[in-house]
Amino acid sequence: MFKGVLLGFMAFAAFAISDAFVKSLRGSLPAYEAVFFGAALGLTALPFIRQPGDRWREVVLARRPGLWLVRAAASAVGSIAAVVAFTALPMAEAFALIFLLPIFVTILSVLVLKEYVGWRRWSAVVAGFVGVLVVLRPGFRALGIGHLAAIVCGLAGAVSMIALRLSGPHEKRLALYGAGMIGSMLFSGVLMLAEFHWPSLAQWGLLAGYGLLAALASVLLMLATQKAPANHVAPTQYSQMLWAVLLGYVLFDDRLDWPMAIGIAIILGAGLFTFVREEQVTQWWKRMRML
């Protein structure tokens, strides 16, 4: 179990560093272009995710293709929104808003799946949105596209998770991972038809770090869920916030004021409580991280 939890921490460290690479582009490439190349490089994880007996065509063939398409679209939208958020906001602030994902899952579980949600989880939802108000402080600070993008990213991740629940527990891991990568490539590729900027050598290096580290993180997370229960691995996601604060301070001179730090703590606490309380959420981690 210890090895699984350790691998979880390593996976989310790799995810956070991957995000730092794409933030280092500083908007010099369109977000959809960064996502396209990042997803293309992310396909390098497929040989490690593929299990004996899996066929390569199962990357795009799912038992419920409609839900595969929903996850593919949600992944594409979420990935582009994440790049916009990391470009425009301090890393910790972007992560805090993206971590509304489990709160959105709770709401969608009621609206879409008609699940019963008790007062404790509703309290966590309210607390999460209170934390958002503390972070954003509307009327007291300028809000921009980055804040909207971060919230959209969290919502897209929640839609992907709900679609995964509906598709059932027997979907091949190859199809689950393929939906995220292929969907992001197709959606971004269409946008690239309108405008394309050939990356410079330095930009290629940053894109490589972004895509390859995300692929490595996905493989590490898969290994983690094989060696430890999902409900032990899932909370390690919140270690990304520590990496966000550290990387933001060291690499991008990000600074957090006290109200923002308090709001972030409220959002993280509400999200972590939701993950712990919601057994069905943790089942998703047994398959694959889909943001």
Results as ranks from 00 to 15, higher is better:
residue 218 S to C: 07
residue 127 A to R: 14
residue 238 Y to P: 05
residue 145 I to A: 14
residue 146 G to T: 01
residue 195 E to N: 08
residue 216 L to C: 10
residue 199 P to Q: 10
residue 237 Q to W: 14
residue 196 F to S: 11
residue 159 V to Q: 06
residue 235 P to G: 10
residue 162 I to W: 09
residue 206 L to K: 08
residue 218 S to P: 06
residue 211 G to H: 11
residue 145 I to N: 00
residue 220 L to D: 02
residue 130 V to F: 08
residue 187 F to W: 10
residue 177 Y to K: 02
residue 182 I to Y: 01
residue 199 P to Y: 05
residue 243 W to T: 09
residue 130 V to N: 04
residue 191 L to E: 14
residue 162 I to V: 15
residue 226 Q to N: 13
residue 170 H to V: 03
residue 208 A to M: 15
residue 205 G to E: 11
residue 231 N to K: 14
residue 155 L to M: 12
residue 188 S to H: 05
residue 192 M to H: 07
residue 226 Q to S: 14
residue 190 V to S: 05
residue 137 R to V: 09
residue 133 L to W: 12
residue 204 W to N: 04
residue 214 A to T: 13
residue 135 V to E: 03
residue 216 L to W: 03
residue 145 I to R: 02
residue 150 A to D: 07
residue 142 A to P: 00
residue 203 Q to T: 00
residue 176 L to E: 11
residue 143 L to S: 06
residue 224 A to S: 15
residue 174 L to F: 08
residue 199 P to T: 08
residue 149 A to R: 01
residue 212 L to P: 00
residue 151 I to S: 04
residue 132 V to G: 05
residue 234 A to N: 03
residue 203 Q to N: 00
residue 139 G to P: 04
residue 188 S to T: 04
residue 235 P to F: 09
residue 248 G to R: 03
residue 237 Q to N: 14
residue 183 G to Y: 08
residue 193 L to Q: 02
residue 145 I to T: 13
residue 149 A to V: 07
residue 128 G to R: 12
residue 162 I to P: 07
residue 222 M to I: 08
residue 223 L to S: 04
residue 139 G to F: 01
residue 204 W to V: 14
residue 228 A to D: 08
residue 166 L to C: 06
residue 179 A to E: 08
residue 231 N to D: 13
residue 161 M to Q: 10
residue 224 A to P: 02
residue 230 A to I: 00
residue 223 L to V: 08
residue 175 A to R: 08
residue 160 S to W: 01
residue 145 I to F: 13
residue 245 V to G: 04
residue 150 A to C: 07
residue 132 V to H: 01
residue 191 L to I: 09
residue 221 L to K: 03
residue 178 G to A: 13
residue 139 G to R: 05
residue 238 Y to N: 11
residue 214 A to R: 11
residue 197 H to P: 00
residue 190 V to R: 02
residue 179 A to D: 06
residue 206 L to C: 03
residue 175 A to W: 06
residue 224 A to E: 07
residue 229 P to Y: 02
residue 240 Q to I: 11
residue 171 E to M: 09
residue 133 L to I: 05
residue 213 L to Y: 13
residue 187 F to S: 05
residue 224 A to M: 12
residue 245 V to M: 03
residue 136 L to A: 15
residue 194 A to M: 12
residue 158 A to T: 04
residue 242 L to G: 14
residue 130 V to Y: 00
residue 145 I to Y: 07
residue 128 G to K: 10
residue 245 V to C: 02
residue 137 R to K: 14
residue 159 V to C: 00
residue 188 S to R: 04
residue 247 L to G: 00
residue 238 Y to G: 04
residue 203 Q to Y: 05
residue 195 E to Q: 12
residue 178 G to K: 12
residue 232 H to Q: 15
residue 166 L to Y: 12
residue 235 P to A: 13
residue 169 P to C: 02
residue 188 S to N: 12
residue 125 V to Y: 09
residue 198 W to Y: 14
residue 214 A to I: 05
residue 168 G to Y: 13
residue 222 M to H: 06
residue 143 L to V: 06
residue 136 L to G: 05
residue 225 T to E: 02
residue 202 A to N: 13
residue 220 L to P: 01
residue 226 Q to A: 13
residue 195 E to F: 12
residue 144 G to T: 08
residue 244 A to V: 02
residue 169 P to D: 11
residue 190 V to Y: 03
residue 174 L to M: 01
